[in-house]
Design a protein around this nucleic acid. Structure first.
Length: 261
DNA sequence: CTAGATGTTAAGGT
DNA sequence: CACCTTAACATCTA
């Protein structure tokens, strides 16, 4: 479930498992996951070395091997990292396996194979290449308003546009708009600065809370709509029935009573 | 069996 | 020209 808050937890697992640990071997189960590098070359590049640092930017996890050399991991729709110990069975849909000298394995799992791993020089190069806007955790309220102000697409599409703000995906975009009580189809043109400021506030709150709750989408506190992501559920405020529509081609859950068109 | 699922991007349209 | 929308990608599950 990889949006920004989920990435933070992948980073924590990565740091605990991989940082400064000597790499024994890299096994690639699905070539399609690698972009711009072959399995042999990836293994040759990493073998005997250790990752020095890592960083989350939007939905990317950049892992630095040495100066000007690192990996860009993107988790697509179903990607995740899983740690397994020696002799433990590989999880289903294991695509790339990083094995360390201590026999622990960090596994890139991705059922749908939409995620990828490629090489990247450093974080600035990655941001430039992928044309990413500021990370949702760092963008100031003023910058946020300035970036979105003169768009005309629906608020939800704009929030999910990684070149404007990096890190917000389909699920958290719905949550932010639910908490801001704004209909997902509203055009940015219909929103004033105060409403954009409110969206920024809610964006911060949603990300902070998701992190506090370990990005678990089941155990979020009262008032969150994510656990009610199904048609016909009663909205957490008790106001209406959750509806399902398409916005920008993506499934969008919202409460027609709380979020008036 | 068919539809749909958390993301990105190329291609087509306004 | 800048912006917006849609379809396709690969695989599994409800």
């Amino acid at each position: 479930m990889p949006e920004l808050p989920d990435l933070i937890f992948y980073k924590r697992l990565f740091d605990k498992t991989a940082l400064n640990k000597k790499i024994k071997h890299v096994e690639v189960k699905a070539k399609g996951i690698l972009k711009g590098i072959s399995g042999e070359n990836l293994n040759a590049l990493l073998k005997g070395k250790a990752f020095q640092s890592s960083a989350v930017y939007g939905k990317h996890l950049f892992t630095e091997l040495e100066k000007k050399t690192g990996l860009d991991m993107h988790f697509g729709m179903t990607g995740k990292l899983i740690l397994i110990g020696k002799d433990e069975e590989l999880p289903k849909s294991a695509r790339v396996i990083f094995e360390f000298d201590n026999d622990e394995k960090l596994v890139f799992v991705d059922q749908r194979k939409i995620g990828y791993i490629s090489t990247a020089e450093d974080l600035p190069a990655l941001i430039a290449e992928k044309k990413l806007g500021p990370d949702a955790r760092d963008v100031s309220k003023e910058e946020f308003i300035k970036l979105l102000k003169d768009k005309r697409a629906s608020v939800k599409s704009v929030l999910m546009d990684q070149s404007l703000i990096a890190g917000i995906g389909n699920v958290y975009a719905d949550e932010i708009l639910f908490q801001a009580k704004i209909h997902p189809l509203k055009s940015i043109r219909e929103l004033g600065d105060e409403e954009l400021a409110l969206i920024w506030d809610k964006m911060k709150h949603v990300i902070d809370t998701a992190l506090k709750y370990q990005a678990s989408r089941k155990k979020l506190p009262q008032g969150f709509v994510i656990p009610f992501r199904k048609k016909g559920a009663t909205c957490p405020n008790g106001n209406g029935k959750i509806e399902l529509i398409k916005v920008g081609g993506r499934s969008t859950y919202f409460c027609p009573v709380c979020q008036k068109q």
